[in-house]
Design a protein around this nucleic acid. Structure first.
Lengths: 227, 227
DNA sequence: AAATAAATTTAGACAAAGCTAAAAAATTGT
DNA sequence: ACAATTTTTTAGCTTTGTCTAAATTTATTT
């Protein structure tokens, strides 16, 4: 990622990331109030910070017109997201955290400044393409393949992918998965779908099983697609 | 390490660490000027911070009389040092940094706040006792075995230990080590020492070799002693 | 097209952590 | 013992990122 040769404070980095995420949702320019809510701060604080980021050409800002990232700001955001997601992979794959425990710690680790560290971490992890939630990891240049994380219920027959998450993390659902030998990281192939009730037959390591529509709409697969 | 239930800023943690290190050297109470030099700041700033740390009972402070850590402060210092050294082991053992490149990054990583993270990192690394420089890693309760990192030239015959560092990191010296199959992490035993010129015979994986006094006074061994 | 409501910005303050310059205490030298 | 020097502290100012309250602009309603 074309390193940024200027110092950024922790707070600035958090704002850039928040603006990036909000503009993913809306694709328009982002409202002051929306940023304030995301950052758990007040709109007046946002205005101050946005002016500062604008001075540094990280965002495009016109009074009362909302804010959007500049190309420079976008690359900064992607560099932070890259770090965040690589650390999440580390926490899950190497330190045995479960995929739903890692966000908070990764929020801290993403601010560590060292290009060498991230390069070596990336290599150590085997250059992963997605984080434990199935979200794509940008490469050094800020490129990444669009997320193709989808619910089993939304995928066509013969799709193949890695199970990367659940919608419903209730205890009963997680117990069901356990009983049926379904774990995050497993590779599934969708063999068939019943018109009648939406139930789906999938092949797993342990053989093929039939799951109800309700289950299928709670399991996310990360599609291992062309690249 | 008896977690500290109060928030500490990055700066406060750095001061506590600096005071700890300075009181290791001097064992007396630490001077304002000494802290200022260590922290690359001005004495007046130190006075301000020391007052703040005193309010929080992390240090004992009387005007004009210098400062020393309270028991609480000492435990905080050891917790930070524990984190610093564990991260150094990670960087060297897992990410293939060389032992002289890791300090700066570990300075950042040591401030990450998560007990679970440090516990799991410790386990992942196999509960190491010393960092890549041979300095001891305090355990969770703040206990550690005193460092027994010594130059080969200062050790008695039949001592055995792991090579953990060099005094002189010049290219020529490092090349010499390479040529003689000496690497950090190797275990050596001191077999004999010549009265005449101080040269030493040591046994290595590759057999026993004779090294000059000059070499012996540039190689640190970490003694694997009783504990 | 006003009037009202909502969103945004400005102005002025505050806490953290630093600085400079000046004052006060401690130490040293003779 | 006391003058000179060094160390430490105080006082007042700066910057960063936040806040509240008031003012202003934009959006919505009738």
């Amino acid at each position: 990622m074309l390193l940024y040769y200027f110092e950024m404070t922790l707070s600035e980095e958090d704002y850039i990331k928040a603006i990036y995420h909000l503009s993913q949702i809306d694709s328009k320019s982002v409202a002051t109030n929306a940023i304030a809510e995301q950052m758990k701060t007040k709109p007046s604080s946002v205005t101050d910070m946005v002016k500062k980021l604008s001075e540094k050409s990280l965002v495009k800002y016109k009074k009362y017109q909302g804010v959007s990232l500049s190309e420079k700001g976008r690359l900064v955001a992607l560099s932070i997201i890259r770090k965040h997601r690589l650390w999440e992979v580390f926490l899950v794959d190497k330190l045995n955290f479960s995929w739903d425990e890692v966000h908070e710690v990764a929020e801290q680790l993403e601010h560590i400044k060292s290009d060498a560290l991230i390069d070596k971490l990336d290599a150590h992890l085997g250059f992963p393409k997605v984080d434990p939630h199935g979200d794509p990891i940008p490469n050094k240049e800020g490129f990444f393949t669009k997320s193709v994380k989808k619910l089993i219920s939304e995928l066509p027959i013969l799709s193949e992918g890695v199970c990367v998450g659940v919608n419903d993390s209730s205890v009963t659902f997680l117990k069901f998965l356990d009983k049926n030998n379904i774990a995050l990281g497993d590779t599934f192939k969708i063999l068939d779908r019943e018109e009648f009730d939406g139930s789906v037959t999938i092949s797993t390591r342990a053989g093929s099983i039939r799951i109800s529509e309700q289950i299928a709409s709670n399991l996310f697969l990360e599609i291992v697609d062309e690249e």
